[in-house]
């Protein structure tokens, strides 16, 4: 199985169910797949090399997911980028992997000229509004917008290479020990990990996860893949700076899961009304991305004795509570 099969299966089984909730917008599996198809066509029109690297310079959003699936179903390679990265860092990654096109959010428009100036082989920037870049410096493509709920999704069968060992994505490390390094992951790597994780968490189409972690982190990417593969729902909220807003979203959207790195839990336990609120729909917490202090783990378990906590960091995945 390759990555696009995860989405294709979910669409077949759960087409009309909601895949993504973001800022009160809901996108069904069929809409997501239709959008990904439209974006694939845009990519194919660009005359890129076979197996070209395509960047994702987008905050967590429906656009991110549509572009993500468009890239992998077009047999290109996904390169998620840290949206807080400086133009220098972004440009060095673009050069390092020989990236040919990039999906970029208009939010980061200020950084575009500096990035483009530092790169050679990048051919196109795909953006949901005009990039303002000089046409002779690079091709700007207006990103196809979200299909409406009434658009009919037509499943397309692309003739595909079925080599599961082929490269699917490159994740760059944060570079804390020097230059950031690209970690190359095959379809098989990602699919195997996704299936193992969703079985382990016992995810079903009735689950929904509060997403505060960026998808460009491998842990955020794992949330994306496991929940789409399960036909579940990703509830995106990028306002973790104000944890009260996240807690409101968790309650309003009746999420069944919350996934965080240690600092998310430290902040929520220390400076929010987390423990004063009721989350009757919440089933589990997952934690990864670093070792969490025993005190934080204990406080979380004591505050939520009826929820499961999965500590997914380190060689052993422990199951507590």
């Amino acid at each position: 199985m390759k990555l696009p099969d995860l989405l294709a299966q979910a669409v077949e089984r759960y087409g009309s169910r909601i895949a993504i909730t973001h800022e009160n917008n809901h996108l069904s599996y069929e809409q997501l797949a239709a959008w990904a198809n439209n974006l694939s066509e845009q990519l194919r029109a660009l005359d890129l090399s076979s197996g070209a690297r395509i960047g994702l310079f987008l905050e967590n959003s429906s656009e991110y997911l549509a572009a993500f699936w468009a890239i992998c179903q077009s047999e290109f390679v996904i390169v998620p980028l840290d949206t807080s990265g400086s133009p220098e860092t972004i440009a060095s990654i673009i050069s390092d992997c020989d990236m040919e096109a990039i999906f970029a959010s208009p939010r980061f428009r200020r950084k575009f000229p500096d990035i483009i100036r530092r790169t050679k082989n990048l051919k196109a920037v795909i953006c949901s509004s005009p990039t303002g870049l000089e046409p002779d410096s690079i091709q700007s493509v207006l990103m196809a917008s979200m299909p409406s709920a009434t658009d009919i999704y037509a499943s397309k069968h692309h003739a595909r290479d079925d080599n599961t060992k082929s490269l699917a994505a490159i994740f760059y490390t944060s570079g804390s020990t020097g230059m950031s390094k690209g970690v190359m992951l095959s379809h098989e790597n990602l699919v195997t990990n996704t299936i193992a994780t969703l079985e382990y968490l016992d995810l079903t189409e009735n689950d929904s996860v509060m997403v505060v972690l960026p998808f460009y982190y491998i842990y955020g990417n794992s949330l994306l893949l496991t929940h789409i593969a399960a036909g579940a729902r990703l509830v995106i909220d990028n306002r973790f700076m104000y944890p009260e807003l996240i807690l409101d979203t968790m309650q309003n959207e009746k999420v069944t899961g919350f996934s965080g790195v240690p600092s998310n839990f430290t902040i929520m336990l220390g400076k929010s009304t987390l423990t004063e609120r009721e989350f009757p729909h919440l089933r589990y917490f997952t934690q990864a991305g670093g070792g969490m202090s025993p005190d934080t783990i204990r406080n979380l378990i004591e505050a939520f004795p009826d929820k499961q906590l999965f500590v997914m960091y380190g060689q052993l995945r422990r199951h507590l509570g």
Partner: peptide, 11 residues
Amino acid sequence: EDDEMTPSNLD
């Protein structure tokens, strides 16, 4: 207070 950690107060 924890419930005062909102954009209307701090953003």
